[in-house]
Write a protein that binds this DNA or RNA. Structure first.
Lengths: 164, 164
DNA sequence: TTAACTGATTGCGATTTGCAACTGGTTGTA
DNA sequence: TACAACCAGTTGCAAATCGCAATCAGTTAA
């Protein structure tokens, strides 16, 4: 964990924290897939991360204050990972990357549907979804009630998957 | 250049193209620093990329249709690199990363000023800047005239640097 | 003629990656 | 109480990638 920074450029500094092939995927799974435990992140990932890489990245993200870790009261060995406020605020970055990928790359239909909805929903939907994440990860009650963005995205995904 | 994709997720696919420590910095320099030649990208970069990495990443970006390369008529060996439309459309990704880095990381004052203005300007300013990039990289005349976003960002940067 | 400049390429050690097996402990069930 | 399944990681090792320095061959201006 050497902290030699290459420059004080905000884009560079951001890349030094999350600019690898796995960190943003872990955050994606925590945001959109409700993965909160090590095993969930390990086995339910689309891409198949290996356990040593996952452990290493979780450490890095903890150090960078993007996630936190608490003990799970239901199981002495289980840890619950949560996004911090600054972790939650990476959502717009992911949303823009998803929108770009959806537009220009060979995205699969199942996995693209969320990106499409999120892109169409725009910054307003992102803000709403971030409020929901603040509720589930930080325990901050959200104002708006009713069908959540998270639920809508999940429902859209499942409707594509279950279409025979 | 093996094209084994890990999953059809738009975020993952985007990361497979630009998810390394250098590609987005090269694109940043082309967008905000007007770097169009190999030497400019090599020597005028804040971070000091090495020539083999630069050559490799330019190849990857060419393959991914994010940039193009033309011969410079003024010099038989010189090449001019330009952003394509999909390269230009990475601006919102960079802008969001810059905004996040500006907010949460120890950004230097000189290099942070552009991020601040771009963040405050929001999507409207991004669209304007993208139009300017379409003009300088694709030769598409932009509608709006007057002081460009690029000029404004550059002027703000210089005013911070020259402040004694 | 020659020095500086052009876009790269090469060699090589250091770091990072990714797979597989394994560790030490906890929990549920019979 | 025994035991299998589950938990969060760790370790060993081979392969790939990274990054620095030196170098290359062609081009241009003095």
């Amino acid at each position: 964990m050497t902290d030699d920074q290459r420059s004080g450029c905000p884009i560079n500094l951001t890349l030094e924290v999350v600019g690898d092939k796995w960190s943003l995927l872990i955050i994606r799974d925590m945001m959109f897939g409700n993965r909160r435990h090590f095993r969930e992140l390990l086995t339910k990932s689309e891409e198949g991360i290996s356990s040593n890489i996952l452990a290493d990245r979780l450490k890095t993200l903890l150090d960078a204050d993007i996630i936190t870790r608490e003990d799970d009261p239901s199981h002495k060995q289980k840890g619950i990972y949560s996004l911090t406020e600054q972790g939650i605020e990476l959502l717009p970055v992911l949303a823009q990357m998803a929108a770009w990928g959806y537009k220009y790359l060979p995205v699969s239909e199942e996995l693209g549907i969320r990106a499409r909805l999120l892109s169409e929903g725009g910054p307003k939907m992102w803000a709403e979804f971030m409020d929901e994440l603040r509720e589930s990860h930080l325990g901050v009650a959200r104002r708006k009630k009713g069908p959540s963005v998270g639920e809508r995205l999940q429902a859209a995904y499942e409707s594509v998957v279950n279409r025979t």
